[in-house]
């Protein structure tokens, strides 16, 4: 009367069912902590984000031009739109260079050829600080470091700029 087919005993059946259901519940419990643990890896860092500044690479010449754009910035309590500016030009090696206009002395805004007496230099209106075209501070004027340079990237012919980084001491 014995059946050839391997019967599943009551005990085995219960074992399988309980392991299955238990495993399922354990997985359900674990999934959220695991997702949370992995989350920082998946998150894109906002610090290194580059923003499209609305300037085509073809429009960049050897003459520095001022561009303005805005980025979202979370600063403590506030999330706000921050306006940023840069002086952009092509240097002798045909590389694009974007300088921050913030004077390294006390933070005023410098401009290219801002003074008639000092052509071909960046000029700070506050204390007559000056920088050469390559951003190096002119010795003998108040600033003690060269202008910061923006991180940059060219995508589809458009210029993208990130954060301004200090350069090596001149």
């Amino acid at each position: 009367m014995s059946n050839e087919k391997q019967q599943v005993s009551r005990r085995q059946f219960l074992n399988y069912t309980l392991t299955g259901v238990g495993g399922f519940m354990a997985a359900g419990l674990l999934i959220s902590p695991i997702r949370m643990a992995v989350d920082p890896v998946l998150k894109e860092s906002s610090a290194g984000d580059l923003a499209n500044v609305g300037l085509s690479v073809d429009d960049i010449t050897s003459e520095p031009q001022r561009i303005d754009w805005s980025v979202d910035q979370v600063d403590g309590w506030y999330e706000s739109e921050v306006n940023r500016s840069a002086w952009v030009y092509r240097n002798e090696d045909d590389e694009i260079v974007a300088f921050s206009p913030v004077c390294k002395h006390l933070g005023c805004v410098v401009s290219w050829e801002g003074s008639e007496n000092h052509p071909n230099e960046y000029f700070c209106p506050c204390h007559d600080g000056r920088y050469y075209k390559d951003g190096t501070n002119v010795p003998g004027t108040p600033p003690l470091a060269p202008l910061d340079e923006y991180e940059q990237e060219v995508r589809d012919g458009m210029l993208f700029l990130g954060d301004a980084r200090p350069r090596e001491e001149a």
Binding site: C103, H105, L106, G107, C108, V109, C124, P125, C126, H127
Partner: peptide, 15 residues
């Protein structure tokens, strides 16, 4: 006026 004053301050922060 607040916007204006802040913008002027931004241009000439160092003085």
């Amino acid at each position: 006026m607040n916007i204006l004053a802040n913008e002027i301050e931004k241009e000439l922060t160092g003085r």
